[in-house]
Amino acid sequence: MKQDRRGFLNTLLGIGGIGAIASIIYPVFEFLLPPESREPTVSSIKAGAIDQYEVNSAKILKFGREPVILIRKDSGEFSAFSATCTHLDCIVQYRQDTKQILCACHNGHYDLKGRNVSGPPPKPLTEFKVSVINNEITISTMEG
């Protein structure tokens, strides 16, 4: 009977101990996870006037928190893609000589439609809509 009481108290102490540890660990872990960003979601940005961009060139712009690459092709047309490589998150660049999008981190190539054509990238780059109104360029998500 005496042993039982000891056993009971040990169990109680054990449960209390685990509870105490959990009550310390849980807030610590929650603290370490950053709160959700309150930045408004962006659906379009202004990218300036057409004449700012030479033919066969590109620029990386900030679309909310995401980098977007705006390319002016030889034909004078514009296209825009997410500038984040789908492989390991590096930022891509436009190659004027090969007319491709390159990720220099691991030599991944995309064509001017954003399709992954060689190297490790597993998926195409997300495309953005480019519209030109009165010489002003606007980049927006495909959903608008």
Partner: peptide, 28 residues
């Protein structure tokens, strides 16, 4: 610069290189 393209020759520190290189060889 978070808006600059990644430069060529991004490599991890040498003691991670063997793991990094192995990952490159694995099929998708």
């Amino acid at each position: 610069d978070s808006l600059a393209s990644a430069p060529e020759g991004i490599k991890p520190e040498w003691y991670f290189m063997f793991m990094f290189q192995t990952l490159k060889y694995l099929p998708p």
